[in-house]
Design a protein around this nucleic acid. Structure first.
Lengths: 344, 344
DNA sequence: GAATTTAATGAAAACAGTTGCAAGACTGTT
DNA sequence: AACAGTCTTGCAACTGTTTTCATTAAATTC
């Protein structure tokens, strides 16, 4: 038995292929009775339309490409999920690619996605190789930058202002009276999220006259294990900071576990703040104080936005959408030890 | 400036479209000198081949469909990542779909993926609607079940034996002398993973003459928050179990936080075991004892396997691959309180 | 009841490639 | 130098659908 195509269905229904096509794409153009017949024939033959053939016609491929650094870390998983749910509801399918924080790999992936003629492309962050940008511009595919918001970015973007996130976290620690501050961040080389957070936080501290001790600044990759290991070292000696500003909740989680292992009481003798508010951060003991990035909302909004972008024919359509951050005070931060002692 | 197609490239290189096509698909059939010319023309014109047109020819679409319940929970994220990495290396692109544990939604998603003429499909678990199976059989698309291993399943599968996972966890608790045992599981209705684990564990306990108290068996969805909430209730009174067998590490994490909140010492007065060994489980304080499911390996092996399936023309090609489980003893389990007291 | 719209359908030309076939260009042999 | 055999390459048919245009049937108007 051969796989039924549109001609097969047409014969079965006693109509022309054109009509079958119309039933699927412009049902209102065909007479209800005929439509019924055709729908029956589709049902009966087990016909599944061929999107590839449809896409060939310059029509929508009904796919959206999403390129993320990784999907394994909770951070992006939630956004991917929400994004997927949203576009899926509108009939789009997600083509997923992940490059493991390697911008050259990203170029190749974007190329591959363009071969599949995705209707639009979403990427994480605003840092991308020139080649990637050229490629996308040439193909005139709508491109949306996720995760990061910059009011004046050349790219349409929708996300949070990472500078503000850094600022909020820093200000919270300052407000609590901390001056001996450590920062735990991933490499900021080609990661604009981390970079923005770090520079903003640093600026706030500097403005407050706080000197950031080099020995309390560490660089760790994106993993609980490595964050914990690094913090174990950082917190081992007597001479340790009173507060840790972590680039994100994953790292903060590592920091908290390190403290637990060392018997350092949080928040009594060490404050830890993260950024992100990932699943589980609220449930930790102690519950993590953090700057919430509403992943759900971000992904969903991005999904909606990219679909409007596909709708517009204007290739220069711009959008800069800022998702609000929120400081979530929980139990991992408290008034600085020195200060609290002097108060007592 | 118009988007270059294969004809454009052909003219630029001074050859026929057929030759350009061959350069891309059967490079060995064309003279090295011509090949160079064509490659240059491709480069120069910024040509990006159209996979849709290629797929129309009954050729590979170079895509693989992956259907998961959700990508937001760490559990699947790691597998998705490894799977994607592996198939991506071989030139395939992943079409991702998630159904949120709804098998009817799954049917629709599978249909959508088939419309895109994926070269193969991977799904999670062995429980699927009859419609889904029919659909896939009709289309003769290779189908691989991930995550779950059953030696006699009708579907090619690659994963772990969840019954064994349940058994191992149960036996570990028994070996430690626990008899007052609670189980925290998600709904087992249409989730074969959870069901297999639970029934196997239950059987082991029964065989050991242990009576499972109804009041210590709880059903919670897949979330740290809800697991924690449920366990807070379960562990509140005096009359509580000495050990908790959790369906997975996410739930176990919730259980551990609940205990921490209630001031119950782990493992001194409560043992907790999970299943999965997700990222972070090793770093928790106390570190979680668990049955490791090597997600990385599972995803990668599945990726390799599905590609061989695509290679074979035999639609009945079968594979049942079992990924080994391993009990990882860490600090969240210890000898049962009653027993340890009597020993002292 | 004829003339004019309007609605419903079909025929055929795209779309962007791939491939079987055949012809022309080489190579090596006698 | 003629012949057979092998390499390269182009022609043209084909893939499954959509869409424009034309045609016919039905509905509306006068």
């Amino acid at each position: 038995m051969i796989k039924p195509d549109i001609v097969f269905v047409a014969n079965l229904a006693g109509v022309s292929p054109a009509t079958v096509s119309r039933v699927m794409n412009h049902p209102d153009l065909v007479h209800p009775a005929t439509r019924k017949k055709v729908e029956l024939a589709i049902e009966k033959s087990g016909y599944i339309r061929n999107r590839a053939a449809q896409a060939m016609h310059g029509k929508r491929s009904a796919t959206i490409g999403l390129v993320v650094p990784t999907v394994a870390n909770t951070i992006f998983a939630e956004v991917v999920q929400a994004f997927n749910d949203t576009v899926s509801e509108q009939g789009f399918t997600l083509l997923l690619a992940s490059h493991g924080y390697d911008l050259d790999a990203e170029y190749r992936l974007v190329r591959k996605l363009l071969e599949h003629r995705v209707d639009a492309l979403a990427v994480v962050g605003l840092d991308h190789s020139a080649g990637t940008f050229r490629l996308i511009a040439e193909q005139r595919v709508p491109l949306l930058a996720l995760w990061n918001y910059l009011p004046d970015s050349a790219l349409p973007c929708i996300g949070v202002d990472n500078r503000e996130a850094g600022r909020m976290a820093a200000e919270h620690l300052i407000a609590l009276g901390h001056r001996r501050i450590g920062m735990v961040f991933p490499t900021t080389f080609d990661n604009d999220r981390a970079r923005d957070r770090k520079t903003a936080a640093t600026a706030v501290f500097r403005a407050a006259g706080i000197v950031l001790q080099d020995r309390w600044q560490v660089e760790v990759p994106y993993s609980i294990a490595q964050a914990k290991a690094a913090c174990l070292e950082l917190l081992a000696g007597k001479d340790r900071p009173s507060a840790l500003l972590c680039a994100n909740d994953v790292i903060a989680q590592g920091a908290i576990y390190a403290a637990a292992r060392l018997g350092i009481a949080i928040p009594a003798s060490l404050s830890v703040i993260g950024i992100g508010d990932f699943a589980g951060s609220a449930q930790m003991e102690p519950a993590l104080t953090t700057v919430r990035i509403p992943a759900q909302k971000l992904g969903a909004t991005a999904g909606r936005e990219i679909i409007t972008m596909i709708g517009k024919s204007d290739p220069n359509y711009m959008v800069h959408s800022r998702i609000e951050l929120e400081l979530i005070m929980r139990s991992s931060t408290a008034i600085a030890v020195e200060l609290s002692e002097s108060i007592v």
